[in-house]
Design a binder for these strands. Structure first.
Lengths: 141, 141
DNA sequence: GATTTATTGAAAAATACTTTCATTAAGGGG
DNA sequence: CCCCTTAATGAAAGTATTTTTCAATAAATC
């Protein structure tokens, strides 16, 4: 919490009551929270907090690397056609073209290692890579 | 396209004009499409197609593994607090608790391998794992 | 071709997120 | 410590996205 405030300061942002309340809510949570849930919890500290500020603050915290957007597998945006079995995508950030690739051994190694260290059993995953395709690298994006 | 229709049939779903139009649109696209973009393109084949059907059909195709939801890094749902630097999350599907983990060597290997094979330059990625935490494994989810 | 029933599309509702702008308050300078 | 500048906030309204409901339609089976 103090560390988050320090990050704000160092990056030239002000330390405000809403920002403190939101940080508190996020740090206390044991599960991912929706923007609305963040609002509800943070209002315990700061009664008149509004949802707009929650969105703005979440963006800010994400930018500072303090928060990470979790895609809860429901209700999101783009779609690409895939060959069944090839479940991962590498997207060009400039032209949007994508390449698919299969899970692959390295990911399995990572998963196995993680299962051993955390005791979790991994059942599914979301892996998407973003970068530049050969054409766009040439042009210079 | 024929293969997609075969998948539908085999799974006991009907082959309909809207489903054909939407498959066409997705297979022709070189970039991820939003639901609305799918609608616009598929209407070329099927004038009176509605957005509702697009959403339903996308869900269906996703279920059949023909389409994959791409999270375009904007406008999504949940948030968790993270320690800066630790950019990945392993989420329990039952209780929602999460563990963070750092990128790690195996992922770097996978990325390096992919860059070599595709010519893409990878600049960012989204990796999220879903499974069961030790407690929930015990309970049996 | 008739029948059954999955599928569709329109309308409306619910949800999610953004923009605008007048007001407030953080924090540096005096 | 108070003033002043300006970043930050919150309310309202707007836009985008997705879901629900239900009567009408059209696949596939007989």
């Amino acid at each position: 919490m103090d560390s988050w405030m320090a990050h704000l300061s160092e990056a030239g942002y002000r330390i405000t009551t809403p920002r403190k309340a939101i940080a508190e809510a996020l740090l206390d949570a044991e599960v991912p929270l929706s923007a609305y849930e963040v609002l509800a919890r943070a209002q315990a500290c700061h009664q008149q907090l509004g949802l707009v500020t929650v969105y703005r603050t979440l963006d800010l915290y994400e930018e500072l690397g303090l928060v990470c957007r979790v895609h809860l597998k429901e209700g999101c945006h783009g779609y690409v056609a895939t060959t069944p079995g090839h479940r991962h995508v590498l997207l060009c950030q400039r032209c949007g073209r994508s390449v698919e690739f299969a899970g692959g051994g390295d990911l399995d190694v990572l998963v196995a290692d993680l299962e051993r260290r955390t005791g979790y059993r991994v059942r599914d995953h979301l892996l998407q890579l973003f970068g530049l395709c050969p054409d766009c690298r040439r042009v210079g994006a």
